[in-house]
Design a protein around this nucleic acid. Structure first.
Length: 715
RNA sequence: GCCUCCGUAGCUCAGUGGUAGAGCAGUGCUUUUGUAAAGCACUGGUCGCAGGUUCAAGUCCUGUCGGAGGCUCCA
C-alpha cells in the first residue's frame, strides 16, 4: 500500500506495489512517455523501478520545468550510451573485454582490454559510431534483472572475464552480503547483449539520441600503473543531434580561449625544445603581465608585514636531506649535480652508477642522529646512514624554497616579540614532471612560486592563516575571479601517521576551516588529504576546457622546525619551536598567468596589458603629431606604441583590435589642430569622439594606478 | 613513463607515390587615407630528425624528438 510523495508535495496512494512508470502514467501519458528515469528518495533509478513502500518520487525527464537539460537525464543518457558503445565495440572486436564504463560530467568512457594484436585506433571510430547508430535505431529496451550473489558470481565465472568477476566482487564488498548483482540486457536477457551493471539506464536504446566518440587514451586497471593497461574510449551523448552539435561548437570556442593559443597569438611566452620541455621563456609582452601581477602581490605582502628575501636556485644535497625532500621525492626532482672532481675520483675507483646513486643518497651519522633526536622518531632509518668517507655530496636545483628560508630564520636569534617572521620570495623552483603531464603554462618543470614561510607561535596560527586567505580574496576580487573553490585537507581520522599533537591539529584544522568559510566560496573538507606534517588549504580553479588546476596552497607544518632545529626565545626565557606555515596562494606565476590569460581571453585590463595604448595616425600627414602623442603617453609611464605603417586606418584598427590593445588613440589633422585624440576603447564599435590629449593621459594614468578591472575612460 | 592523434614557410593550413602550394606576416613600390585588412611585386621550405622500401617518398615502413588529449603522479 505505498504512498508516493511527488515533488510538488502531493501524495498518491496505490493498493499494491507499482512501477515509477505507472505512477508517471497516472499523472499523465505525456509525462510517462517523456520519462527517462526516476529518483526515489533522491536515488537515481530506472523508470521501471518498482515502488513497494512509501517514498518520495521524482520523474526524470530530459528537459526540466525551467527548460534546462536535466543533469540526471544526461547521466542516464551517457551511462546508456556507454553500454551501446561497448556492444558496438564487441560486435567489431569480439575479443575485447569490458572493464568499467561510467558517465562523467559532460561525457562518458569505457575502459576496455583489447587483444594486443588488435589495438583500437581512432580510425575505428566511424565503424563503431555506425554500429552504435544501428543499435539506437533498433530501439531495444534496457532490461534489468537481478541474481543472488552465488548465482551472479557463478554466471560471471562461467563467462570468464576477470575484470567483470572483479567488478562483481567489488559490488558485493561495497553493498554487503545480502546484495544482489544486477545485469542489464539491451533487449531480451539471454538473447541480446548484456553487461553486469548497477544501472540505472534510460528505458530503451532509442532514447540515446545522438552520440559521438571523442578520444582514445590508455588507462590502468584500478588506476595502478603496475596493473593491466587498458584502452579508455571517450565519447559523449545527448538526446538530440542539435545539442550534440552545440556541445562540439562550445568545445571549439573554448579551444580558442586556451592560454596556449592566446599565448602564441599575442606572443606572451615561448617554449623552445632546445631549452627544454616545460621551461618557459617569457617574451617582453608576457613578462609585463607577469611583472605587473608580481608587483601587485608584492605590494599587498608588504602591507601585511612580509619581508622579502632572495635565495639561490640550488642548494647542497645535505640541505634537502635535512628537510627530507631528498631522496624521498627524488623521482620528481632534477637529478643531483655532483662536482666534476668527485665524479672523476669515483670513476677512477671503479664506482658503478648505481653505487654512486646509493652514496649520493646516504645520510651522515651526525645528521641522522640529530634529526632523529629532534623529531623523537626513527625519521632517518638506520639503513640510510653511511660513513662520511663514503658519502658523495652534490647540489640540487631547488624543488622548494622552504629549506633556504628555514636557514635564513635560523641564522639569527629570535624573540617571541619578533614573531611572526614572514619571509617572502618569488622563488623559482624546478621539478621533474613526467613528460606526458606537461601543459603550456599550467604544468611546467621550472616555475616561480609566490612563496613565503611564516614562522610563528602556535597561538598565532589562526591569525596568520586568516591573513593568507584575505590576501587571496582581495587579489581574486581585483582580478574579477569568482569561479574558484577551496579544499581543506584534514588528517585521516583512522591514522596515526602524522606529527604533532592531536590537540595542535584540532586547533590548526579549526583555524583552516574558519578561514576557508570566511572566503564566501564553496569549500570542501577532505579528511585524509592533509600532509603528514599539518593540515592545508588548497585553491582550485577550472580552465577553459573544464580541467581543474590547483593554484595556491596554505599548509601548516609542525615538522620543519624540528628538522632544522629552529627556535625562538619565549617569555619564559626558554627556547621554543616555532610552527611554520608554507603559503603560495597563487601557486606559481606561470600557472596563475595561464589561468589569467584564459580568464580574460587575452583581453587584459589596462594595468596588466603588455601594450596599453596604440597611437594610430590617419595618414603620414599626422605622423608628427602622432609621435608627440606617443611621447606624452610614454612620459606618463604608459606602455604605448605607434602604428605608422602606410596601412589605411581600417587596417590599423583591425590589427590593434586583434591584439586586444585596451585603447586606440586615433589621430588625424582634426585632432592635431585641437591637441586632441579620438579614443577607441577595446570591445566597442566606434570611438568616443575627440578628447583633449591631457585629459586622456590623466584618465589612463589613474585607471592604471587603481588597477581597474574594466576599461573606464569616459568621453 | 603509458595509449591515440598530430608535426609542410614566422603563423594558419592545402597537398593519398611522379616538378613543394595558398592566405596572413615580412621587404619594396603605388596610394595619403577618419575607425575590424587598399593594390602590385618580391622574399621566404633539407616537408621535425634519422634510417628503410621504391626507378621515384611530404605521401609507405621503422626508430627518434617535439606537440595535443587522456591515464598515472603532483612535497
Amino acid at each position: 500500500m505505498p504512498t508516493i510523495t511527488l515533488p510538488d508535495g502531493s501524495h498518491k496512494s496505490f493498493p499494491a506495489p507499482v512501477s515509477a512508470r505507472d505512477v508517471a502514467s497516472s499523472i499523465g501519458p505525456k509525462l510517462a512517455a517523456a520519462a527517462l528515469g526516476c529518483k526515489v528518495d533522491g536515488e537515481l533509478s530506472d523508470i521501471s523501478r518498482v515502488l513497494d513502500r512509501d517514498c518520495k518520487l521524482e520523474i526524470v525527464t530530459y528537459k526540466q520545468r525551467d527548460g534546462q537539460i536535466s543533469k540526471d537525464a544526461l547521466y542516464l543518457v551517457r551511462h546508456s550510451a556507454a553500454h551501446i558503445m561497448a556492444e558496438a565495440i564487441q560486435r567489431i572486436v569480439p575479443e575485447a573485454q569490458l572493464v568499467y564504463g561510467p558517465p562523467l560530467e559532460d561525457k562518458f568512457y569505457y575502459d576496455i582490454k583489447f587483444p594486443d594484436n588488435r589495438p583500437l585506433r581512432d580510425g575505428d571510430f566511424s565503424a563503431i559510431e555506425a554500429e552504435m547508430k544501428k543499435i539506437i535505431a533498433e530501439d531495444r529496451a534496457f532490461c534489468r534483472y537481478e541474481m543472488s550473489i552465488a548465482e551472479g558470481m557463478a554466471k560471471l565465472k562461467r563467462e570468464g572475464s576477470k575484470y567483470k568477476i572483479d567488478n562483481g566482487e567489488r559490488a558485493i564488498a561495497a553493498s554487503g552480503n545480502d546484495a544482489k548483482l544486477s545485469f542489464y540486457a539491451t533487449g531480451t536477457p539471454g538473447q541480446n547483449w548484456e553487461d553486469l551493471c548497477r544501472g540505472p539506464h534510460v528505458p530503451s536504446t532509442a532514447r540515446v539520441g545522438a552520440i559521438k566518440l571523442l578520444t582514445l587514451a590508455s588507462s590502468y586497471w584500478h588506476g595502478d600503473e603496475n596493473s593491466d593497461r587498458l584502452t579508455r574510449v571517450y565519447g559523449t551523448a545527448f538526446s538530440t543531434q542539435a545539442e550534440l552539435d552545440e556541445y562540439m561548437k562550445q568545445r571549439e570556442e573554448a579551444a580558442k580561449r586556451d592560454h596556449k593559443v592566446i599565448g602564441k597569438n599575442l606572443r606572451l611566452y615561448h617554449i623552445d625544445e632546445d631549452v627544454g620541455q616545460g621551461l618557459i621563456l617569457w617574451t617582453p609582452r608576457g613578462s609585463v603581465v607577469r611583472k605587473e601581477l608580481q608587483n601587485f602581490i608584492g605590494e599587498e605582502l608588504k602591507k601585511q608585514g612580509y619581508t622579502e628575501v632572495f635565495t639561490p636556485h640550488i642548494g647542497r644535497l645535505e640541505l634537502y636531506k635535512t628537510s627530507g625532500h631528498f631522496p624521498y621525492y627524488k623521482d620528481s626532482q632534477f637529478p643531483p649535480i655532483v662536482e666534476r672532481q668527485a665524479l672523476e675520483e669515483l670513476s677512477k675507483a671503479g664506482c658503478t652508477c648505481s653505487e654512486m646513486m646509493h652514496r649520493v643518497e646516504g645520510v651522515s651519522a651526525r645528521l641522522a642522529a640529530g634529526i632523529n633526536e629532534r623529531t623523537k622518531a626513527q625519521t632517518i632509518a638506520p639503513d640510510r646512514v653511511m660513513a662520511d668517507d663514503k658519502l658523495v655530496d652534490g647540489f640540487m636545483l631547488k624543488p622548494m624554497n622552504c629549506p633556504h628560508h628555514a636557514k635564513i630564520f635560523g641564522s639569527s636569534p629570535h624573540s617571541y616579540r619578533d614573531m611572526p617572521v614572514r619571509l617572502a620570495e618569488f622563488g623559482t623552483v624546478y621539478r621533474w614532471e613526467q613528460s606526458g603531464e606537461l601543459n603550456g603554462l599550467t604544468r611546467v618543470r621550472g616555475f616561480t612560486q609566490d612563496d613565503a614561510h611564516l614562522f610563528c607561535t602556535e597561538d598565532q596560527i589562526p591569525g596568520e592563516i586568516q591573513g593568507c586567505l584575505s590576501l587571496v580574496k582581495h587579489i581574486f576580487s581585483v582580478l574579477g575571479m569568482k569561479d574558484y573553490r577551496v579544499r581543506v585537507g584534514l588528517r585521516d581520522p583512522d591514522s596515526s601517521k602524522f606529527t604533532g599533537s592531536p590537540e595542535s591539529w584540532d586547533k590548526a584544522e579549526a583555524a583552516c576551516i574558519a578561514a576557508a568559510q570566511s572566503l564566501g566560496v564553496s569549500f570542501s573538507k577532505e579528511p585524509g588529504e592533509a600532509a603528514f606534517y599539518g593540515p592545508k588549504i588548497d585553491f582550485v580553479v577550472k580552465d577553459v576546457i573544464g580541467r581543474e588546476w590547483q593554484l595556491g596552497t596554505v599548509q601548516v607544518d609542525y615538522q620543519m622546525a624540528n628538522r632544522f632545529d629552529l627556535s625562538y626565545i619565549g617569555p619564559d626565557n626558554a627556547a621554543h619551536r616555532p610552527v611554520v606555515i608554507h603559503r603560495a596562494p597563487f601557486g606559481s606565476m606561470e600557472r596563475f598567468c595561464g589561468v589569467l590569460i584564459e580568464h580574460f581571453a587575452g583581453a587584459f585590463p589596462l594595468w596588466l596589458s603588455p601594450e596599453q595604448v596604440r597611437v594610430l595616425p590617419i595618414s603620414e600627414k599626422s605622423s608628427e603629431y602622432a609621435h608627440r602623442v606617443l611621447s606624452q603617453l610614454k612620459a606618463a609611464g604608459l606602455r604605448a606604441s605607434i602604428d605608422d605603417s602606410n596601412d589605411r586606418i581600417q587596417g590599423k584598427v583591425k590589427v590593434a583590435a586583434d591584439e586586444k590593445i585596451p585603447y586606440m588613440a586615433i589621430v588625424g589633422p582634426r585632432d592635431a589642430e585641437s591637441n586632441a585624440v579620438s579614443v577607441r576603447v577595446r570591445g566597442t564599435e566606434k570611438d568616443l569622439g575627440s578628447m583633449p590629449l591631457d585629459r586622456f593621459v590623466e584618465a589612463l594614468k589613474s585607471e592604471y594606478a587603481s588597477r581597474n578591472a574594466v576599461l573606464g575612460v569616459k568621453p
